[in-house]
Amino acid sequence: MMAAIIALTLLAVVFGLMLGFAAIRFKVEGDPLVDKIDALLPQTQCGQCSYPGCRPYAEAIAKGEADINQCPPGGETTIIALADLLDRDPKPLNPENGTVKPKMVAVIDEQRCIGCTLCIQACPVDAILGAAKHMHTVIESECTGCELCLPPCPVDCIDMVPLGQDILTWKWPYPEEAAPKPAVLEKAS
């Protein structure tokens, strides 16, 4: 009886010390979950999720304040990935946050641009190039299509155009969405 109590107490002390040591030695700085969530978000920084950027949204999800279906640019893929990560059930995109649109980029009509720099200040990824009273232009490869430059423009010279597809970025469609092969060929002249 006594021996058992002593043995169990000893075991408890040893394991307690080990756990205590591990808690100090292997302490993780920051919140790894936020980083993991942030890595899945599309980084458009568009704010459609009602948070001021992707990282704040990731933090809100980690805290349980926000749901996983508030990111329209990420669409279904992001929701599924978040559901996988957080072990929740995927759900359709919340229509209050917007709808899934094809990938777009902003294009400045350089004839109409007055060089006010307001769009440069609004761009979250510094994808607009220009200086005061000089024409501005969008660096297409850096533009995330967040549309944040549209409201500040006083002359309404920024348009969102769908990203063109070429044979390098083309991919096979989902089999049920399109007929796998054209049923009737265009008869060439």
Binding site: Q45, C54, T77, V125, A127, W170, K171, W172, Y174
Partner: peptide
């Protein structure tokens, strides 16, 4: 073929998102 294309697209987008995150 669809799945391969989707994975490549996803990888391209991931790369682009990483660049956007760094820039942001």
């Amino acid at each position: 073929r669809y799945a391969k294309g989707d994975i490549w697209t996803r990888e391209r987008e991931k790369e682009k998102a990483d660049i956007a995150r760094r820039r942001h």
